[in-house]
């Protein structure tokens, strides 16, 4: 039953991803001109001039002279074979450039998600059970401020504190000696040392909203009659809250993965630029600005796919957790 549901959902993703690919393609085509115009402009800055024949030649080589739909179909056809095309700017296959960065992006988002849950869950439960206590007010206040502070501002403030008070640059994911080194135990440990800052920066606003969601849901559930039933059975206060209302309030909490993960992936773009992390964000921004269309397209497409996968995971989890959600 559940497998049928999962298969069905995955099949549903196909038209979805198709639509995403169209949007991604249109987006990277939206700027006036193409990579060559940017390239020529760049060369023009250093007083180099390309003659028309070379330009036409290049345009033909990159396939930029063909109509849009042909370019799109070619792109998709190559995509299906796992070929993301060539980056104009880097003169390298796009797949060489994106995978490590996407991997780090995913890892960062996932670590942040775990952090978010680990922090938001107990605080949310505490806040609801001890409604209007001092702890609740503190949590609510921090939650509000976390919600109102843009990620990049938080990142800047933490970096400022790092530089001014500790004299260290806290940006990046790796220390200098590991930056270009191959993966090793030392590199992983180094990564973990650097990871906390982006995780905290990225996770704060999601944590804040999850605390609010958990608190509100649990408050709703705490006044439900089945809590009275459990109390009338003779269950201890702690267990009855954990087994019943918290269990029920967990469902909407878990299903937030559907938007928290995409938000994290999304938010990571800006944070990564500020903290100069070697994730997808900075490279994508650069590719967008220089109209390096295959590279930019690959990022937009892959990030969108992560979003869709996040929603898929949340739907499946919800079905597994909540017997009321019927699947057919």
């Amino acid at each position: 039953m559940i497998w049928r549901y999962i298969v069905k959902r995955i099949i549903w993703m196909v038209p979805f991803l198709f639509a995403v690919s169209v949007v991604a393609f249109l987006l990277i085509q939206a700027p006036p001109g193409d990579y060559l115009t940017t390239y020529i402009a760049k060369l023009g800055e250093s007083n180099e001039v390309l003659d028309q024949a070379t330009i036409d030649n290049l345009r033909r080589r990159f396939g930029l002279d063909q109509p849009l739909y042909v370019q799109y179909l070619k792109w998709v056809a190559n995509l299906l074979q796992g070929d993301f095309g060539m980056s104009f700017e880097w003169r390298q296959p796009v797949s060489d450039l994106v995978w490590e960065r996407m991997g780090l992006t995913f890892m960062l988002s996932f670590a942040t998600l775990l952090f978010t849950w680990a922090v938001a869950f107990p605080i949310g439960v505490y806040s609801a059970v001890k409604k209007y206590s001092i702890g609740d007010y503190v949590a609510t206040t921090i939650g509000f401020i976390g919600l109102a502070t843009p990620n990049f501002l938080l990142a800047l403030i933490l970096m400022y504190i790092g530089v001014v008070y500790f004299g260290t640059d806290v940006g990046g994911l790796f220390s200098n000696e590991y930056k270009n080194a191959p993966w090793s135990m030392g590199k992983v440990i180094d990564l973990l040392k650097h990871l906390w800052l982006p995780v905290v920066v990225l996770g704060t606003s999601a944590t804040a909203s999850l605390i609010r969601i958990m608190r509100a849901n649990l408050l709703d559930e705490l006044s439900k009659p089945y809590v009275d039933t459990a109390r009338a059975k003779g269950l201890s206060e702690f267990w009855l809250i954990m087994k019943y209302p918290v269990r029920v309030a967990l469902n909407p909490f878990i299903s937030t993965i559907g938007w928290v993960l995409p938000n994290l992936v999304s938010g990571a773009v800006i944070t990564a630029i500020v903290l100069s992390l070697p994730t997808a964000g900075p490279l994508m921004l650069q590719a967008l600005l220089s109209q390096d269309m295959f590279l930019a397209g690959a990022f937009v497409l892959l990030l969108s796919s992560l979003t869709v996968i996040g929603m898929l995971i949340s739907d499946i989890l919800l079905v597994l957790l909540d017997p009321r959600v019927k699947y057919e």
Binding site: L27, A30, P31, G267, V269, I270, L306, T307, V308
Partner: peptide, 16 residues
């Protein structure tokens, strides 16, 4: 389901 920030970036980058 579209990731907002990459889409904004792409849209904003397309402004001349």
């Amino acid at each position: 389901s579209l990731p907002t920030i990459p889409i904004w970036l792409a849209l904003a980058a397309s402004l001349p």
